[in-house]
């Protein structure tokens, strides 16, 4: 009896650990589109976030946004606003929500959702042009990568 109780507790802990990166479908957005808790359960790594932002196969955020701090990577786009200073006027929670799914805050925005795996039309298998199986669609960025990007955005303070 006692023993089963213990193993049950162990199992519970294990599932809690697995559920720790919050799945894309489970993210809680508040009414403004912000997300309170870390998606991965861990802190973000700003240096890695900067790499993700310029990587074409990952965030490729500079395709649409100018970011002076990332000027080493060439060709910043002008589809979205400049992100200079965004860490001073946006909270961590807001930034997490915007990167995970900007449409929760900006209705109909052209900014893609980076942590969403359902509801898109004809989702592809990456950039191959071939169909993806809905069940194995991965978010564009992982929970930890979202946290890394958010950590980097918070370093963008008004000078």
């Amino acid at each position: 009896m006692k023993l089963t109780g213990i193993s049950a507790a162990v199992v519970l802990c294990a599932t809690a650990a697995i559920a720790n990166p919050i799945a894309p479908g489970e993210v809680q957005y508040d009414e403004y589109g912000a997300v309170a808790a870390s998606l991965s359960g861990s802190e973000g790594d700003a240096a890695n976030g900067a790499k993700i932002m310029v990587n074409r196969g990952k965030g490729n955020c500079v395709a649409c946004h100018a970011v002076t701090a990332l000027n080493e990577a060439p060709f910043h786009g002008e589809v979205g606003p400049s992100l200079d200073g965004v860490g001073s006027y946006r909270s961590e929670e807001e930034l997490r929500g915007i990167v995970a799914n900007a449409k929760k805050m900006f209705e109909g925005t052209v900014m893609p959702a980076f942590y969403k795996t359902s509801g898109s039309i004809r989702p592809g298998d990456g950039y191959t042009g071939k169909a993806a199986e809905e069940e194995d669609l991965m978010p564009i960025l992982s929970a930890q990568e979202i946290e890394d990007v958010v950590a980097f955005l918070l370093t963008l303070q008004d000078s």
């Binding site: 898109s120 004809r122 989702p123 592809g124 298998d125 990456g126 950039y127 042009g129 169909a131």
Partner: peptide, 9 residues
């Protein structure tokens, strides 16, 4: 252009 949206074209 459609492929670049991560779509099945």
């Amino acid at each position: 252009c459609i492929r670049d949206t991560r779509a099945e074209t």
